[in-house]
């Protein structure tokens, strides 16, 4: 069983943290992963930085730009992650835009991810149909799960289609927006979380976009299996450095 699937079977609400590889410093990747696992984080999304991150708000745009300036690139990330499975067992998901994967070669990229111990992908600009028709077979061959995003505007038919072609979790985008922390969730989001929960999908749902603290984490996980924090974590390590990661995570989980 894939590490993501095993984690999803645990009887608890899951906290997943996103960070941009190569930020704040180019060689922080492994240290951040180790500290996140030690702090009790359930899953980690490693952001592969891209020059034109369309679905991201200002915080992740800035961390991506900084990471690229720091010299981060695909081959370097694989080199940094070479021995990561000797150090951690937490599920690792690579989140990135499709063009850098395309340039590396999709099959070569998947093979390398499998070798270093990546468990799945989140690729915002790879549409479900294209994945299904052209890439699913390759991802499957290397045991990599593909995680789909849904939004409040996604139709039930389309959600059910995505559910049918995935075997991990559904990434539930909390509102119509790019990434970045907002002040909190209202009735609109509650209704949407509930509507999706009532679809009784095969895959559990994890909420992302707009989760920044314990309160929003609790709200998001009332009807969902877990929640993902990205921009708020990046802002935190930008201000506090990576040494205090356990405090950030502790404030959410305790």
């Amino acid at each position: 069983m894939n590490r993501i699937q095993a984690k999803l079977k645990e009887d608890k609400k899951l906290l997943s943290i996103y960070f941009s590889a190569g930020f704040p410093e180019v060689n922080d990747t492994v240290e951040i992963i180790k500290r996140l696992e030690k702090s009790g984080v359930d899953m980690i999304e490693i952001g592969l930085p891209f020059s034109d991150p369309l679905a991201d708000g200002p915080t992740i745009q800035a961390s991506s730009t900084k990471a690229l300036k720091n010299g981060m690139h695909t081959a370097l990330l694989f080199k940094q992650l070479k021995d990561i499975r000797k150090e951690v067992s937490v599920p690792l998901i690579l989140m990135g835009y499709f063009n850098p994967m395309l340039q590396y070669g999709v099959e070569a990229f998947c093979k390398k991810c499998h070798e270093v111990g990546i468990d799945g992908f989140i690729i915002p600009d790879l549409p479900a149909q294209v994945y299904d028709e052209e890439y699913k077979a390759i991802f499957d061959r290397y045991g990599l799960l593909n995680i789909f995003l849904i939004t409040p505007q996604t139709s039930n038919d389309r959600i059910q289609y995505m559910d049918s072609i995935s075997e991990g979790f559904i990434y539930m985008v909390s509102s119509a927006s790019t990434t970045g922390a907002q002040s909190g969730f209202g009735h609109t989001q509650e209704d949407y979380f509930k509507r999706i929960a009532d679809l009784n999908l095969k895959n559990p749902q994890i909420v992302g976009f707009g989760i920044s603290n314990k309160q929003t984490f609790t709200q998001a996980t009332t009807h969902a299996k877990g929640a993902i924090i990205g921009s708020a974590f990046i802002k935190y390590i930008d201000a506090q450095g990576i040494a205090k990661i356990h405090e950030f995570v502790g404030n959410i989980l305790n």
């Binding site: 369309l54 679905a55 499709f98 915002p124 600009d125 790879l126 549409p127 479900a128 294209v130 789909f148 995003l149 849904i150 939004t151 505007q153 996604t154 139709s155 389309r158 985008v173 119509a176 927006s177 790019t178």
Partner: peptide
């Protein structure tokens, strides 16, 4: 090749 948010 668009994010799901633009799909509708």
């Amino acid at each position: 090749f668009i994010p799901e948010m633009l799909y509708p």
